[in-house]
Design a protein around this nucleic acid. Sequence first.
DNA 1: AGCCTTTGACCAGCG
DNA 2: TCGCTGGTCAAAGGC
Length: 515
Amino acid sequence: MAGIDENLALNGDWGLPSPSPRSLFSRLLEEDNNNVIRPNSEHSGSGRTEGQDGDSGTQLSDTSYPTENKWSSRGGLVDRIAARTGFNAPRLNTESIRSTELSLNSEIQSPYLTIPPGLSPTTLLDSPVFLANSLAQPSPTTGKFPFVSNGNIRSTELSSDVQEKSKHNGFNDIYASSFAFKPTADSGPSFYQGAGRNMNTTTLSQHSLHGFEASVQSQRVDAVNVQTENKSSLHLKAEFSDSPPQKDNSTQLEEQADEEGEQRVNGDSLVAGVGGTPSEDGYNWRKYGQKQVKGSEYPRSYYKCTHSNCPVKKKVERSHEGHITEIIYKGAHNHPKPPPSRRSGIGSTNPHADMQVDNPEHGEPQGGGGGDLGWANVQKGNIAGAGNWKHDNLEATSAVNPGYGNQSTNLQTQNGTTHIDSGDAVDRSSTFSNEEEEDDQGTHGSVSLGYDAEGDESESKRRKLESYAEMSGATRAIREPRVVVQTTSEVDILDDGYRWRKYGQKVVKGNPNPR
DNA sequence: AGCCTTTGACCAGCG
DNA sequence: TCGCTGGTCAAAGGC
């Protein structure tokens, strides 16, 4: 939506804006700002922190040179846009991170991303995107998990919470350690390791979202995709923190494949678990249909929550291998999670379940809402929304849990990269990905997911799938230590808490995207 | 016996 | 109006 337009505008940035119109730029910038803000304002009203906005504004004013201005003010945004459009996403300097990280954590050594102290997960969270998300609702995507029931979680809170909770929640780990991809993983790792395939996305219910709808659509991550809704956050955590993207361990991979999770880990995961098996996400699902969807490589399964009167449905696409490539949740549960005991054993084994259970709140959000029935998809969701899915509701695809709240987020991590898409209508999605993905996702990125979706759901899916496939494939193996953050929206992650000024752009050989 | 999955058919929306 | 596509229904069968 607006985001897209904005993006477009931003895109213009990539190219040199015609010099002529400073005013034009400024205007664009302003618009962008507005847009950026908008999402928040629109959705939640909470938008970014004033500071950010204000800053941007100042910068804008400052920018006498269009290009610089843009960058200065929105470098991040631009990048994001670029990312969306397919341009490279800004990269985080992992080196610095590593160093710091290393000092902190020996394990983190992995070439993968680690978030340096300077960059705290918090900052990331704080990033506009996250903020939005946070504002919106806690979601894995946002990085804010619904630890807080309401979801009004601020990055700061999150960060703090995360840290504190990290122990409890994988999610925390994610942030905290987060983004540190360890090759080894170990431990938890299974999540990641796997390689993930993709996870799913979860969507936040926008309605709930105040503003942010972050939906992440499917992300394919080699490493892991995590889609989570509120609850799913847990999954995310696990994935992130735990999973070393690369790793792969075949077993892990498989597990991951299940990725989703944590649940899967034990259970079957994703497939079975999250998506497939209902229970894995803590809820009981009944499959009521399966169909090959055009544009989708894999058949889509339709599930309904077996709880009486619970309107929640989910669509799960699984690869032949059984890995879930995409999960879309529709609606919010209007009931607490059933005891794990039930079938799949999900409960018992599933961390998710536990988590969820533990965090009823998470679940509830939606529920509270009573659920919104609408699909919250970021991916397709809104966009599609027009079509199949309702706007109001977000369609979220989450690999993990659809829990209550419609929040959905997808985290995809590819081998080394993690994509986080949050798709709100607005876009607050950010993706961390390897370059490879960038391409695809760039366009797609969170953007693609949500936004792209606007254009084509199918495409977004395809992209996802493709990327996914790619990820799983060779790409995975090849990881670069670097982390690319793609932000779909202006607001996004670029804002890593730091302000960036673009001081140059160059086409690098071998890289279609200007650097 | 109950629940779930499978699968073909039906329906609705959209171009 | 037709065709395409996605979502849902419901019978049959399995666990």
